[in-house]
Amino acid sequence: MTRPTRRIFDPHIHMTSRTTDDYAAMYASGVRALVEPSFWLGQPRTSPATFLDYFDALLGWEPYRAAQYGIAHHCTLALNPKEANDPRCLPVLDELPRYLLKDGVVAVGEIGYDSMTPAEDDALAAQLQLAHDHELPALVHTPHRDKAAGLARTLDVLRESPLAPERVLLDHLNETTVGDAADSGCWLGFSIYPDTKMDPDRMVRILRVHGTERVLVNSAADWGHSDPLKTGHVADAMLAAGFEDDDVDTVLWRNPVAFYGQSGHLHLDVPPPGAREQQHLFQGNSILRGGE
């Protein structure tokens, strides 16, 4: 059920792995803005150069693609936790500062822990400092394995960092970690997946207990088994459970706008698909490919 007034901001989705059909379906479900965090590609990178190509795509081609479907695209940039363990990739940290100045970069991320190694400690601390220096918030991934211990260690590092809790979004939370995360003062992110992470009904139960304050919901859809429409499913489940439209708007629009808006880099004014601007000189639709 799509309500005409519904607007959705997916604060974590990997669109480089998705199709134009996904963009169209997301728009139809109410998605008007999203943030694409840089992360692992499913296969290891072997040099900083491939990170830079990826960053360039997140700052050029992918926002262009999203705009064709009426969706405002932003990104977060970082050395991800998994690849922080590969010395071949570490030099990308030297390249990050000039990228963090760019329009469309709304946070440093995804950073955090994967296997909780010393190398991950270093990359996390260094990139929290980067976020502070660039006056950007940070998107912090909590580990999939040993999650509760991983969150505790993440919170320790955050306390030592110069970044204020209100400038940190802790992501991939669940029933076991939401309490400590909420107590930290950070923003609370929940990823809704078909089989793993959270599902819409469990998300509604968490919202009943913790309320909507500082809560963000994302699909985290990527190259794996995932669903870019999960944000809309949460909106539906909230309404079915008795939440008001205003609650849905808080969780699915106003909270992500407030969090990422701290960057000063959010730009949400994208014309709808098919609008005159799309036919304008610089907004034609090459995604239709025209036989290329």
């Binding site: 010395p87 570490l90 940290l93 030297d94 990050l96 500062p97 000039r98 100045l101 010393p118 400690d121 270093d122 990359a123 601390a125 260094a126 990139q127 929290l128 400092q129 980067l130 220096d133 660039h134 030592e160 960092s161």
Partner: peptide, 16 residues
């Protein structure tokens, strides 16, 4: 640099 970091992250990555 952030306190307590190890090599190689003891280098700084400040605003360019």
């Amino acid at each position: 640099p952030p306190s307590g970091t190890r090599t190689p992250a003891t280098r700084t990555h400040s605003v360019p």
